[in-house]
């Protein structure tokens, strides 16, 4: 891993089951295998740190004291984040190039690329990067 690597998040949208319903079982298996290869290659290079799918069930909490709770699923399912991958890479350019190689883009997947800041805006010191270096 490069010493000046910084943490980035790839956020996956429009990755719901409906995107793949017209694929044959063989095509689904191939897509899954390509997706895993994409991740495993990055992981072997130390560039992908972790990744995980998110359950489809959602709940939106808002209002003072969390008085408004909206249960999913929502109409705008395409907007929902379906999973994420955390990268350690040289910058936004490299993170974007990695996202561009994703095999599910051809099936409608949308990837948002965001850098993780080292300190949050409330001023609390962030200590994830020191943990990450031990991975």
């Amino acid at each position: 891993m490069e010493t000046n690597a910084a943490p980035y998040m790839l956020l996956f949208r429009n990755s719901g089951p409906e995107n793949y319903q017209y694929l044959s079982p063989e095509q689904r298996q191939q897509l899954m295998a390509r997706w895993n290869t994409w991740y495993d290659d990055l992981s072997a290079q130390g560039k992908a740190i972790e990744g995980q799918p998110l359950e489809l069930e959602r709940r939106l909490v808002s209002g003072i004291g969390g008085e408004r709770i909206v249960d999913g699923p929502f109409a705008e399912a395409k907007e929902a984040i379906g999973g994420y991958v955390k990268l350690m890479v040289s910058g936004l350019e490299e993170a974007t190039e990695i996202a561009q190689r994703h095999p599910a883009l051809e099936y409608g997947l949308q990837i948002e690329v965001r850098e993780l800041t080292h300190a949050c805006h409330l001023g609390v010191q962030h200590h994830t990067s020191s943990q990450l270096s031990a991975v």
């Binding site: 990755s15 089951p17 689904r28 897509l31 899954m32 895993n36 995980q52 799918p53």
Partner: peptide, 10 residues
């Protein structure tokens, strides 16, 4: 489909 989605990412 759920397997595809979960196993792709996880």
């Amino acid at each position: 489909l759920r397997a595809l989605r979960t196993w792709s990412m996880g």
